[in-house]
Design a protein around this nucleic acid. Structure first.
Lengths: 189, 189
DNA sequence: CGTCTATTTGAATGTACTCAAAAGCGGTGG
DNA sequence: CCACCGCTTTTGAGTACATTCAAATAGACG
């Protein structure tokens, strides 16, 4: 149960005392999942925020033709979840599963709400996380309009150099929003 | 200088005492801008968060061919700015200008940072704002990949019924990411 | 009234998708 | 260890959605 990667991540933004950190971790559950195992199903209410200790998760939605659109890959050190469902308490549109065997730290939304009052500094931590994520998705929303498939592929490669090496092409296609057939053609000129 | 719309907006998320509210507003500057007047230029460092008291602002970027891509319309009651530049302190890629004559409440990033320590509850307010915005841009990033131009147009109409009535078509095109010519053809079947 | 910008329309083009089929590859069980 | 099954990748032909470029028309504003 090595939690230091999450500890580190928190301490990068805020200072917590030993007691506060212990309190926080008393609500954190560790879970190991195998490749392809689900942590959230489409249509379910999301009750947990998920932090990847090792391995990699992904969140994605599926359209009426069965095509997957991957919203996020979460390698080691990233948070992931269905923010819409987590914020609103309504059933979400995303599924979350494991890309590889992974170890996850999870914290329940209800516990987190309690922790916000006991450790107000956590508001800073999650505010900064949300702001950084916001910057990323704002630019991705624009890029998905103005860049060609090839340019989106190149950005993916520079942004996730370690992922590009070990992901099946199909999943890269689902992230940049093209069909697997088209990505294949593109890569062979 | 009617600030009650911002007061209301804040009180929807957190309780502030009269003193805290006064302190907050002591750092708020009010500014009136004419249609087309700029509040931020592409390449500048963004030093202010902007709240629209009346009227409407927009943020957008421009590609190498001169095409505009509008990231956000901010009618009355919305915050707007270049989050990337605001967070990182680096020169941004967005311009912000007024769609109509508008009245803006602005707060400097440096003042806001000071306020975070004096009124920690503000972290909750801006955390919640960032989370809600994140939910929106995450879904927009996905929609920009999986929806056709027509579907994106329809979403725009349902999301901004009041804007669709008074915006030039060209700006709607720049928001949904199509050429003005194509939007025109689409609307005339 | 004249100028500048927005909208419309048309023809030609390009980017990416659909459908279909074949080839490659990895894991699993016999 | 090999054969088979299922999934991923490749390839091709035809198609659809959206762009580019050009030119004409309409509207807004001083």
């Amino acid at each position: 149960m090595d939690q230091h990667i999450l500890t580190e991540n928190i301490l990068k933004q805020i200072d917590l005392t030993k007691e506060e950190m212990d309190l926080f971790f008393s609500f954190v559950k560790i879970k190991k999942v195998k490749k392809k195992q689900f942590l959230l199903l489409e249509g379910d209410v999301s009750r947990y925020a998920l932090f990847v200790v090792s391995g990699c998760l992904r969140s994605y939605c599926v359209d009426e033709n069965g095509y997957q659109y991957i919203q996020q890959f979460a390698p080691e050190g990233w948070w992931i979840g269905d923010m819409y469902s987590l914020v609103t308490g309504k059933p979400g549109y995303l599924a979350v599963d494991a890309v590889f065997d992974s170890e996850i730290a999870m914290i329940a939304k209800t516990d987190l709400n309690r922790l916000y009052t006991e450790i107000p500094k956590l508001n800073i931590y999650f505010r900064v996380l949300a702001e950084n994520a916001l910057v990323y998705y704002q630019s991705r929303a624009m890029e998905n309009l103005r860049l060609t498939a090839k340019e989106r592929y190149e950005r993916f490669c520079t942004r996730y150099p370690s992922l590009i090496a070990c992901l099946p092409q199909k999943q890269v296609a689902a992230y940049i929003g093209v069909t697997p057939e088209f990505l294949s053609k593109m890569l062979n000129q």
